[in-house]
Simulated assay, not measured.
Amino acid sequence: MNESKSNLERVRAIIRSQYFWGIVAIFLLLLINLIKDPSYLNLSYNPTTGAFVGNIIDILRAAAPILMIAVGVCLVIATGGIDLSVGSVMVVSGAVTMEFLSAANQPDSIGAAALAILLALLLSTVLGLVNGVLVAFVGLQPFITTLVMMLAGRGIAKVITEGQNTSATNEPVRWIANGYAFGLPVVFLIAVAVIVVVSIVVRKSALGLMIEAIGIDPKASRLAGLNRRGLLLTVYAISGLLAGIAGIFATASVMTVDVSRTGYQLELDAILAVVIGGTSLAGGKFSIGGAVIGALLIATLDKTVLFLGVPSSATPAFKAIVIIALCLLSSERVRSLFRQRRLTTPLTPKETVPS
């Protein structure tokens, strides 16, 4: 009896977990695609390229940039802030990479690729630090600060590229987005490696607890001796760095930066991924694993929209319906209302217990 009760409690705990319903939604979307095309989940191996080929692989590749910005935004939101600038930081990173490689004109140079990536990530981190300085030291609201940076970032990208879409040729950078290792996309493996490193740094040290503390109660954390300003600088810098990595991923796939479209509205996908993963926009406790599940869900949803042939004009509404339904399912308050309704529903004559 006690064992069955404990098993029931485990099941309830899983259902109440932050990312359970995100996983359910991913499986439902894949099931919908599978109903339309029974071969949707088929994987094949190409011995020439040493890669697995299939829709699942395409989803993993598409998820890589969303994973990066979602993890960065997750840390910022945990402090009680927000970062609306990640999409614009992406385009700045891509612009620096493509402009440098175009000027270098060394298609096979690993050195040129490494220097271009280093410059892009350095500038992305600086933009993140600017956000952190304005929030932590100047005292501006995170929403206003990152909104300004969102507008300024695209302006910076246009200055770098002189307002033109820039293309370049460099095989090492192209391999990052289009290459394979162990049969899987390199871009996804890099994203996973970065997430693992961030998770270890955040969860195996006091950093994660301090981030949660300033998100729950900034005044109490300051009285406890936490360096709130330093922590804010850290999380905004990390968000900028991860957005820079996402920008390289996005531009390296086609070796072109589009100053108007690269990273466009991806900040909204990042915020949605974080919320789907169970992190509260009010700050405090956060879940990097939940953000990862949310990012995979967004990538799966985007792929499903294209596969089902949903018109582009109706795509935002379709995504909104799916995400709202998911949020309602994951809401403890909504589930409790349904439970109360079942308990208060009167019995029918056939169900009435005889006296």
Rank of each mutant, 00 (worst) to 15 (best):
A120L: 03
L122V: 13
S124W: 06
T125F: 06
V126P: 01
V126S: 01
V126R: 00
L127G: 00
V135D: 03
A136P: 08
F137A: 11
G139R: 09
G139S: 11
L140M: 15
Q141G: 11
Q141L: 06
I144V: 15
T146W: 08
L147E: 09
V148M: 15
M150N: 12
L151M: 13
R154P: 04
R154T: 07
I156V: 15
K158C: 01
I160S: 02
N165L: 03
A168P: 10
A168R: 07
P172V: 05
I176W: 06
A177M: 09
N178L: 14
G179K: 02
F182N: 06
F182Y: 14
F182M: 14
G183S: 10
G183P: 08
G183D: 09
L184D: 03
V187A: 09
F188Q: 01
L189Y: 10
I190M: 11
A191L: 02
V192I: 15
V192C: 11
V192Y: 05
V194W: 01
V194L: 12
I195R: 01
I195T: 12
V198E: 00
V198R: 01
S199N: 12
S199K: 07
S199D: 12
R203S: 13
R203K: 15
S205E: 08
S205P: 04
L207I: 15
L209M: 14
